[in-house]
Design a protein around this nucleic acid. Structure first.
Lengths: 330, 330
DNA sequence: CTGAAAGCGCTTACAG
DNA sequence: CTGAAAGCGCTTACAG
């Protein structure tokens, strides 16, 4: 491997000068700069990032904490993060926590030994004391998709607006008995989606019917069960707003298994717009979250925090959702 | 941050001794080892991985090159890699190449400045000279899922056997006119799947009908087109073997759009067993690739190569596929 | 078994 | 503007 010494020798200057010519932080005469650059080129010199990191106490790497790469929600966001990190010369390390706080703590500790420069965190849930401590230390971090209450840097979708628009749209199609199949209210974004749903109903003067509102639904199996329960009870339902696409998939399967049709008998609205959801039968009408762009925004925000001299004021960036109308709503 | 010096001071020994006690490579008396461990605990000392890496010329970091995280093929494999890397104290850096050789070269170069210890490569395709060079340097690398011809370390599925079994199964269901919707023959695994298909046909004394064999099909849109073409020509087809699940999804949509039913009119067999494919309508019968385990195996192989004193002989590990029978074949 | 010293490849405060 | 020196936090060959 060619080092800064080799470059210095070839250019006939000291290693200090090479370093300065390369960093650009400290003035170097045009002439010597040229000599250095020539030597760099000729030797194809690549600075050693570890050595630099050791000296500077920064490693140009970012940690990304997510529950599980296999969740279809994450790949697009990861891609946005990777692309952005790469653009700024950063590298990202992926950590799957499986929603396990202990695993998360272990990951955070082990990454700190690598002098990680900051974290993007998509695992916010009750029991996040360790994250607050990290933040109090002034450690750069930004929440993505999920966030926790309070004044922390975060990038999320506009969950309230998305849910509001979705419900409004169902209403506009003449659907009145709109069931809600929602996630855990422990998680902020499900509280917000619930609010959006209620607001739209309220504006249409439709009273909230708690019989057809189900919370704590996780994933498609649960979605299936929730819908089956609704159907068993023979409650009047002409549409279902499932607040995540996996839930919607389960809901659709249940409806079909009970011999009914989507959307002729019951319309189904999802939330997420996962890459696969246009391929379903029927293709799912859903609220589209800008996952890729959220990844980009979170990564840019984190890098800005890392590279700032003074920590900027916390900022919550909320990206708009938009309805992706396909065929599961009549 | 607490360093080895702090530990040395507290334990009343030199930093050399602390280092030796911790590594275990060099004998240290039981007594001093105890003192060191005590100090380590009390101070919660975490060695600085960058410093260690700089000294040792290794970084305990692995590079993973894939075309795109958003391809549904990869998340499970990534998860297997992450879990394994983590178990051995390694960290993995993900790179999306978009099948672009230039991007790939840039990634490889920039990771080498980080003293990356080895690569897992899922991007093998024509134009891999740079990979051969890397290999010739003795740089640790293993191919995953896709590999190139020759004697290189690799972990793949048994593509021949999988395709053979799939075709045999279709035959066993009384299906005789089995179309093949296949990928590019530039890619080894599609050649192997083609061979498996031909072998099964041959054994059943069914001549290969080139009219219903289509190659160079990439993704679901292409799968749709391929099937549409077949249908337009009114060729006799009672089953389709699509050699990837996305192709199968396109095939199914085309069949439905032409007013036919799966599997009543035409049966469809896929290949991959992506996480979502059981949720389709009808749930897809497909060849299941052990993506997670392939990720684990590739990562273990790579770490073994990295940590070996002498480079072990190249080894190709082939994991068996198994049929996952659902409802798209009659 | 243990310590002092050198060195991994950088950057930057200190002189000049 | 430039060089010599110190130092980031480790490990290990060299003495003892």
């Amino acid at each position: 491997m060619v080092t800064i010494k080799d470059v210095a020798k070839r250019a006939g200057v000291s290693t200090s000068t090479v370093s300065r010519a390369l960093s650009g932080n400290i003035p170097v005469s045009e002439e010597t700069k040229k000599k250095v650059m020539k030597a760099v080129k000729e030797l194809n010199y690549q600075p050693n990032v570890l050595a630099k990191g050791l000296k500077l106490g920064r490693s140009k790497t970012l940690g990304l904490l997510i529950p599980n790469v296999r969740d279809l929600v994450f790949p697009a966001a990861i891609r946005g993060i990777e692309d952005t990190a790469n653009k700024y010369g950063y590298t990202v390390v992926l950590c799957n926590t499986d929603e396990d706080i202990e695993r998360e703590k272990i990951y955070i500790n082990s990454l700190r030994r690598r002098l990680i420069d900051g974290f993007i965190i998509s695992t916010a849930r009750p029991g996040h004391k360790h994250l607050l401590e990290l933040n109090n230390e002034g450690f750069p971090m930004v929440f993505l998709i999920r966030r926790i209450k309070g004044n922390f840097d975060a990038v999320t979708a506009d969950n309230f607006q998305g849910a509001y628009d979705a419900t409004k749209y169902l209403l506009s199609r003449g659907l009145k008995n709109i069931a809600l199949v929602n996630g855990s209210l422990d998680i902020l974004l499900y509280r917000e989606r619930f609010k959006g749903y209620k607001k739209a109903l309220e504006e249409a003067n439709i009273p909230l019917n708690n019989d057809i509102v189900i919370h704590n639904v996780y994933g498609w199996e649960d979605g299936y069960k929730a819908m089956a329960t609704l159907l068993e009870q023979k409650l009047k339902v002409d549409a279902v707003f499932a607040t995540s696409d996996p839930k919607a998939i389960g809901v659709i399967r249940a409806i079909k298994d009970y011999g009914l049709s989507v959307p002729d008998d019951i319309s189904v609205m999802g939330f997420d717009d996962l890459d696969v959801v246009g391929l379903l039968d029927p293709p799912l009408t859903t609220v589209s979250q800008p996952f890729y762009n959220m990844g980009v925004a979170a990564c840019e925000m984190l890098i800005r925090i890392i590279e700032a001299k003074r920590r900027p004021k916390p900022m919550i960036k909320t990206l708009p959702c938009k309805l992706n109308i396909r065929s599961s709503v009549r």
